[in-house]
Amino acid sequence: MKRLLAVVLILGGVLIGGSYLMTGRLPWVALSEEEKQVAELREAFGLIRQQWQTAGQTQALGVDASSQIEGPLAKLEQIDKDLEALMPRLKTYEARNQAKQLRHDIDTFKAEMK
């Protein structure tokens, strides 16, 4: 019985530790409001990236995809502006780090677009 309890405790510790290493937070801690705002921007950026890739595949087939490209570019500029406005208001360390990572990802994506 003691061994079973020890195995369960160790397994639980490993799962919680793995979750913490992967996400940077404990499983029972909810996102702050700031982190939710950054996560929404990251999700919108992910959709833009997918739309851009789809437009690129369409162009590779020889189809005019200029209308598919203009939409994501306008949305990307809006996300960029929203992130710039949000960054000075972020107070939590985690939200600031996530915003900096998103800024880096957006800049990298813009550089790849050229």
Rank of each mutant, 00 (worst) to 15 (best):
A6F: 10
L86M: 03
K110T: 04
D105S: 09
L83Q: 01
L90E: 13
E35G: 03
A44H: 07
L76I: 01
M22P: 00
G46Q: 06
M1C: 02
L9Y: 07
T58D: 08
V63F: 12
P88I: 07
L86R: 05
A39K: 10
L83Y: 04
L15I: 13
F45Q: 13
V29N: 05
R3Q: 14
Y93P: 00
L86H: 09
L31F: 12
W52M: 13
L61R: 13
R3N: 09
Q51Y: 08
T92D: 14
A85W: 02
V7N: 04
A6K: 05
L41C: 03
R49Q: 15
K81E: 15
V38S: 07
E94T: 13
A111E: 15
A44M: 04
A65D: 11
A74R: 12
L41I: 05
L15F: 11
K91L: 05
L83A: 01
A30F: 05
F109K: 01
A60W: 08
V38D: 09
R96M: 06
D105Y: 06
K75H: 10
D82L: 02
T92P: 00
E34R: 02
M22L: 11
Y93M: 03
V29P: 00
T23H: 14
A60I: 02
M1L: 06
L76M: 13
I79Y: 07
F109V: 01
K36D: 12
Q51P: 00
F109M: 10
R96P: 01
K2Y: 11
G46E: 12
R96K: 15
G17V: 05
S32G: 14
G46T: 07
Q57T: 04
M1F: 06
K114H: 13
L21W: 15
R42E: 15
L9S: 12
Q101L: 12
Y93A: 05
R89P: 00
A65Y: 06
E70T: 14
T23R: 08
L11V: 15
V29S: 03
M22A: 14
S66T: 15
K75Y: 07
Q51I: 00
G12P: 01
G24S: 03
L31R: 08
A74G: 04
K114V: 10
W52H: 10
D107H: 06
E40F: 04
A30R: 09
E34F: 04
G56C: 02
L15G: 01
M87K: 15
G13D: 12
E112P: 00
Q53E: 15
P88T: 10
G24I: 09
S66W: 08
L21S: 05
